[in-house]
């Protein structure tokens, strides 16, 4: 398999703080790769090392076949980068920024003008092309940022939290654009929005406290962490009974997490296959519903989504950090 990005024993220290620890990763070419992790996990640090903005304290990384530490300009010709809040020269106009970036990549004359026009059209900024960027909205800036990142047809595109500042429509459009790059460009996207990763990514890596907890395809993750989820949708007007039911389920030993969202009770059962707890959960839930006197419109056994898996993995922690805060907060807040 051909890899677009490889990291071997990558580490980054800021004094006594380890931002990244012994990270090894291989990202297949042409895939859309999601890098997940809570705030402070090391996602941005890794992205900045791979794009040459900061130096690793140890280990090695290769992007598009080139050593990151020694390749400099040659590497940067082959990548595109979009930051969470794209930063531009506010005095430039949209068209001017694209032309400037295109020139940095060696485009000149008619090919440059054609590529600028193409990217303006793709990003929906043709009408605003002659306006100063300082007057652009957040969504327009993000679209311009993506156009600038793609102007050189990069082999590898780095997106650092690209979606979090967008409205739903902008988010949809950006995810569509990212999906269309599959196969032609390797997309490395750091984010904490799990639904977006689930929607567009083929592979996922989860970082926490600078350590790689897992790297796998989304399908492998689902198989590996295939704890059952029970979805119970009570009929309306049973608030008291539903509250009682949730308390009863929460008291069960096999229950990991119970949430009530949008009128649906979501129960995550603990993975204790050896003593058949999942079976026990299946057996116990409906009697609890009956005992609580709750009338259901829907009862469904489902597969966990990426959010459930993420919380499960991050919550598992390591010897050095037995209970990361995010997972702890999630468990305390839900169970």
């Amino acid at each position: 398999m051909e890899y677009a990005i490889t990291c071997t024993g990558l580490s980054k220290r800021y004094g006594s703080l380890a931002a990244l620890t012994d990270l090894s990763l291989a990202i297949p070419a042409g895939t859309i790769y999601g890098l997940l992790g809570p705030n402070g996990a090391g996602k941005t640090t890794l992205t900045h090392i791979l794009t040459g903005l900061i130096h690793a304290s140890g280990g090695a990384a290769r992007v598009a076949g080139l050593d990151v530490a020694s390749s400099g300009v040659a590497l940067r010709r082959r990548i595109g980068v979009l930051e969470q809040q794209p930063l531009f020269y506010g005095w430039m106009r949209g068209r001017e920024a694209l032309a400037f970036t295109g020139e940095l990549f060696g485009l000149r004359g008619a090919p440059l003008r054609a590529r600028v026009a193409e990217m303006l059209a793709v990003s929906g900024l043709t009408a605003a092309a002659n306006r100063r960027i300082s007057g652009y909205s957040g969504g327009m800036r993000q679209r311009l940022g993506l156009a600038l990142a793609l102007i050189n047809r990069p082999e590898v595109l780095f997106l650092d939290e690209p979606i979090s500042s967008l409205d739903p429509e902008g988010r949809y459009d950006l995810l569509q654009t990212i999906s269309q790059l599959r196969g032609a460009t390797t997309v490395f996207m750091s984010t904490h929005i799990l639904a977006d990763v689930e929607r567009v990514c083929d592979h996922v890596a989860i970082l926490d406290h600078g350590k790689l907890l897992i790297a796998a395809t989304v399908a492998e993750l689902r198989d590996r962490y295939a704890q059952p989820i029970f979805l119970l949708e009570p009929e309306g007007g049973q608030d008291q009974a539903v509250g009682y039911l949730i308390d009863q389920i929460r008291a069960e030993a096999w229950c990991t997490r119970v949430t009530l969202e949008g009128g649906v009770i979501r129960v995550l059962a603990r993975d204790m296959v050896p003593d058949h707890s999942v079976t026990r959960a299946s057996e116990r839930i409906l009697p609890l519903v009956v005992a609580a006197g709750v009338h259901l419109q829907r009862f469904e056994r489902s597969r966990p989504d990426l959010e459930d898996i993420f919380l499960q993995i991050v919550g598992r922690g390591t010897a050095a950090d037995p209970q990361p805060k995010l997972a702890q907060a999630a468990q305390e807040g839900t169970k």
């Binding site: 400099g72 010709r77 930051e83 930063l87 990549f105």
Partner: peptide
């Protein structure tokens, strides 16, 4: 300070 140096220096500029 504004981050525009980082914006430019991830492109082919020494």
């Amino acid at each position: 300070e504004r981050g525009t140096a980082a914006f430019v220096l991830v492109k082919p500029v020494t």
